[in-house]
Nucleic acid binder design. Sequence first.
DNA 1: CGATTACTTGAGGCCTGTCAATGATGGTGG
DNA 2: CCACCATCATTGACAGGCCTCAAGTAATCG
Lengths: 242, 242
Amino acid sequence: MTTKCEDCPLRRLDVFKEFSKDELIFMDRFKTGELIAQPGTEVLAQDASSTQLYTALSGMGLRHKTLEDGSRQVVGFVLPGDFVGLQTGVMDVMRHSVEATTQMTLCVFNRSEIWSLFKNQPQRAFALTHLAAQEESLLGEALTAVGQLDGMGKVAWALHRFFTRLTALDLNSNGRVPMPYRQQDLADALGLSLVHTNKTLAKLRDKGIASWSDDDLVVHDEARLAQLAHVGSEEAKPRPLI
Amino acid sequence: MTTKCEDCPLRRLDVFKEFSKDELIFMDRFKTGELIAQPGTEVLAQDASSTQLYTALSGMGLRHKTLEDGSRQVVGFVLPGDFVGLQTGVMDVMRHSVEATTQMTLCVFNRSEIWSLFKNQPQRAFALTHLAAQEESLLGEALTAVGQLDGMGKVAWALHRFFTRLTALDLNSNGRVPMPYRQQDLADALGLSLVHTNKTLAKLRDKGIASWSDDDLVVHDEARLAQLAHVGSEEAKPRPLI
DNA sequence: CGATTACTTGAGGCCTGTCAATGATGGTGG
DNA sequence: CCACCATCATTGACAGGCCTCAAGTAATCG
């Protein structure tokens, strides 16, 4: 038994734009099922094409690229509401892998239906493009953090962004959000070594700014964290959900 | 007197997908004029919205983000055929600035017409999304290079990617392509200091692999450059032009 | 011809990577 | 129930790649 789009819990969050009645009906036909991905499972593979596209409904994962020498760049964290598979949807192949770090539930769409979305549901097509632009924006921020900040800045940036995104998803309870990743994942996202990432996290913990352990991130001083991350305080604008 | 889309020189290049007769007619109505941007001019400003979107017709520029402490991250180089303004088109504001480094000619579109594109020209809307996905892919590669490679690798990656893109645009004459940027621009793109970038370029020159001076990049040993950049040899697939 | 911009080169120091060892936890099989 | 193993987090020591500071050259411009 799968969730009907009408009953989708994500849809009610303020971060997501509202659906018209029409859109809801279309989405319900567009959605062909649900996929349960176990932790460690690869949902989409780099350099491969897929006939299916997904929207994360619950659980978390990450996007990463692997170089031939074995090093790995984490290019993003997949949270509920994120669309995955855009690249295979419009360009044939994925340029990065997507893997589940916790158990994930994903809404499944057929790639072959993408065209009908553009042809019959311009609003939904626009939403898809909006998400693509948003993803581009996110990657630009990540590139800026990795390129311009020092170790402390990078780690602070990542924790702050994560905290903000999770808070928008209403997963923040008293300054605590779930963060079910390994330190190695964060290190690979920031271009830092595992050791240095670990020591930097220890500093943030000792200073009483933020502490991350046992899959939970607790932020004690958000202002200080934002300052270290060199980010202002922008509220999240509503984005589409697909 | 502006170029008609039918006569657009870019359209004939193999990198770009072909237009249908219908699309050509639509694009000609969609295009409202041309903008000549002088070197150093800002075409689109970070955190601002614009009523106009552009496709670069000739000349080169760059996209960059500026932090409040003055440091700058170059998030991309704008070449002929590149669409700029997607973010302001679908999300209101730009998250980076776009500036011309040479004189540029840009095709101008009205942002308000974007919706008619989605409503009446699903093929063109799809093309736009394709470009967005491509841009995301490019940023993912840049992030991987900046995050995982050492100084030599980063510089080699940038030169290789630049050389490949310019070659696809048929701007390669005997292993020489125009590269009208400052070393500081490259440094800001790679998260390296100007000094270190300069010394790394000198090494590549001394080894006879590639030399960049006087706004021209000459690649003498593409295979070695690709190896240093940790990239395989993938041919460029045709992409849409808007 | 002074001022400005960009490129080049050397010297010194620190941030960050690498190596290595230890602890903590959880799963597994005897 | 307890060795055994695998994974992940933690900490110290050391080295090196890259940054910063600084000075000098070359080219362009008003």
